[in-house]
Amino acid sequence: MTWEPRPLPSVTPETAPYWEATADDQLLLCHCTACDLTYYYPRSRCPDCLSDAVEWQEAAGTGVVYSHTATELVSEWPEEALPVVVAYVELDEGPRVLTNLVDCDPADVAVGAPVEVTFVETGADLSIPVFELRE
């Protein structure tokens, strides 16, 4: 599958390392060295303590489904991209990330199902991290 014509993220200096890593099939989280919090989405200061002593940490890329929905309507998305399974995945590192589940029958998705990250190429210099069901 390809990503476009679905929307691409706009990359800012603050989030560039995150998106650049996706081109190498890496999913990055932020880790605060001041309070030891691992968090998502990426920000330059820790949302728990506002320290800027934050480093990038590669996620294992595995987790479980926290919640999911097969959505029939998304504004301005092409029909061929729908329905799309929108989900929260709880990563092994802790954070719950909003994402899509791909290459699956929505009827097979369940809360608690194990998943792993995969990356959809976009034609741009970044890929979109999504998840698929793990056997």
């Binding site: 800012t12 309507l73 998304v74 991209a81 929260y88 909003l98």
Partner: peptide
């Protein structure tokens, strides 16, 4: 940049309807 975190939501179709459906499911 003005809606920074939405870059991690819109790419996944994370808009009103699914964002409430996710709450219902959980």
């Amino acid at each position: 940049d003005r809606i920074m975190q939405e870059n991690f939501e819109e790419v996944y179709g994370g808009e009103t309807l699914p964002l409430y459906a996710l709450a219902a499911r959980r």
